[in-house]
Each structure stands twice: as structure tokens, then as C-alpha cells.
Amino acid sequence: MATTVSASTLNGRHHKAALTVFMVIVVAHWGEHLVQAVQVYVWGWPLSEARGVLGLPFPWLVTSEWMHYGYALLMLVGLVLLRKGFAGRSRTWWNISLGIQVWHHMEHLLLLGQKLSGLNLMGRPVPTSVLQLFLPRMELHLFYNAVVFAPMVVAMVLHRRASEHAGAACTCAVAH
């Protein structure tokens, strides 16, 4: 018989496991962006050849707006679903990450809309997000991933402290 995980158990007894799975996905994605930056800035590869780790054998991953949008949506859904497990200051930091991801998601939705319609922002030759008008795409996504990831890490560190865990229904806290 299959078992299902409800929102209350996801943010209760399964919170630690769900956070672990979510963070493995987030760190793997963050790692892809960092590898791409190393390929460009350390190894001197042209941007067109710097595709991260997975993009080398699967180059379509780098150019797929669907894949990028899907990841942005997955991040948004994960941040929303796991939010109720946080309390106090850790919830505040998680909310900061969520707020930034809402904007990041909207940027990817804008990119996907341009790709599907063929109508690019300000007549640009390729789909362009709002902040891409000011920053190159690779550097912008390094920035986005950093500013979503940093408050998420702060939230998780605080969440693991027993002294900060009042009001949380999960078993993530570590006694010190």
C-alpha cells in the first residue's frame, strides 16, 4: 500500500528529510552555476562552451528555457511547501529567500514567455529578463542563486538550534 506525505507531516516528522532532499537539489544546481563560472573565468572557455557539468554531455540543458523555468518553479514550490516547518527567526530568513525566489521565478516566466512567443523584451535578439538589461545572464544567475541560497542557509542553521525551535512541529533541532 502506498503512503502519502501530507503537508502537516512534511513540515513535521518528515521535515528534516524533505529539507535534505531539497538542499541536495539546490546545492547541485548552485554547483552547476559555479562550475560554469569556473569554466569561463578560470579556464578561459568561451561562454558558448561553458555549460557546467551536466551541460557538457547534455548541451540542450543550458539552452532550454523550459528546464530553467522548471527549476525556478521547483524552488518556489519547495520554499512554499517547507515554509510552515520554520518558526521565529528561521521563518523570517526563509521568507526572505522565498521573496527573492518569487522575483527570480517571475524573471524565468518572462524568459519562457519570450521563448514561446518569439517576442523578446525591448526587441532583443534573445529572450531577456528585466535585470539582464543591466547584467549578463550568467553573472545574473550566479547572483540570483547566491541571494536565494544565503538566507536559506541562515534559516536552516537557525532552524536546527533548539533555542530557536520554539513553535516548530518538526524534529530538526539539535540539542547543544
Rank of each mutant, 00 (worst) to 15 (best):
Thr92Val: 14
Ala28Trp: 12
His104Glu: 09
Gly31Cys: 07
Gly12Tyr: 00
Val21Pro: 03
Trp94Ala: 08
Glu65Thr: 14
Val40Lys: 11
Asn95Gln: 11
Thr3Val: 14
Trp45Val: 03
Gln101Asp: 05
Gly12His: 01
Val53Arg: 00
Val24Leu: 02
Gly85Tyr: 03
Ser48Cys: 12
Ser90His: 02
Leu98Val: 00
His68Trp: 06
Trp94Tyr: 02
Thr3Pro: 14
Gly44Trp: 01
Thr9Met: 13
Leu56Tyr: 13
His14Phe: 15
Glu49Arg: 12
Ala50Gly: 11
Pro59Ala: 06
Tyr69Pro: 04
Leu54Ala: 08
Trp94Cys: 06
Asn95Lys: 10
Met67Ala: 15
Gly52Phe: 11
Ser90Val: 03
Gly52Arg: 04
Ser90Asp: 01
Leu73Phe: 06
Trp66Glu: 14
Val40Ile: 15
Trp43Ser: 09
Ser8Cys: 00
Ala17Arg: 02
Leu111Pro: 00
Gly99Pro: 02
Val26Asp: 01
His33Asn: 15
Glu107Phe: 10
Thr63Ile: 08
Trp93Asn: 03
Val24Lys: 07
Trp30Ile: 12
Leu10Met: 14
Gly12Glu: 03
His68Met: 02
Glu32Thr: 14
Leu98Trp: 05
Trp66Ile: 11
Val40Ser: 05
Arg89Cys: 04
Val27Thr: 14
Arg83Asp: 08
Ile25Arg: 07
Val21Asn: 08
Ile96Asp: 06
Leu47Phe: 06
Pro46Gly: 09
Met75Pro: 03
Ala18Gln: 00
Ser6Tyr: 10
Leu19Asn: 09
Gly88Ser: 05
Gln114Asn: 13
Trp45Lys: 14
Ile100Ser: 10
His15Tyr: 04
Leu109Pro: 10
Leu79Gln: 05
Tyr41Trp: 08
Ser64Leu: 10
Ser8Asn: 03
His68Ser: 02
Pro57Arg: 04
Gly113Gln: 00
Thr20Ser: 04
Arg51His: 13
Ala18Gly: 07
Ser97Lys: 04
Gly88Ala: 01
Gly52Met: 01
His29Lys: 06
Gly70Pro: 00
Gln39Pro: 10
Ala50Tyr: 06
Gly44Ser: 03
Leu19Thr: 13
Leu110Phe: 13
His14Gly: 11
Leu56Ile: 00
Gly85Thr: 04
Ala28Leu: 14
Pro59Arg: 04
Ala2Ser: 15
Lys115Ile: 12
His14Gln: 13
Leu109Glu: 00
Gly88Met: 01
Val77Asp: 03
Val102Leu: 08
Met106Pro: 05
Val62Ala: 12
Leu34Phe: 12
Arg91Gln: 09
Tyr69Lys: 01
Trp45Arg: 09
Arg83Leu: 07
Gly12Leu: 05
Leu73His: 02
Gly113Glu: 06
Phe58Thr: 07
Val102Pro: 01
His14Ala: 07
Leu73Pro: 07
Glu65Met: 13
Ser90Ile: 04
His29Asn: 14
Ala17Gly: 10
Trp30Pro: 07
Leu98His: 02
Gln39Phe: 12
Val38Arg: 06
Ala37Met: 10
Gly113Asn: 05
Trp60His: 08
Lys16Ser: 13
Val102Cys: 05
Ala72Ile: 10
Val26Glu: 08
Gly12Trp: 08
Thr4Pro: 07
Lys84Ala: 13
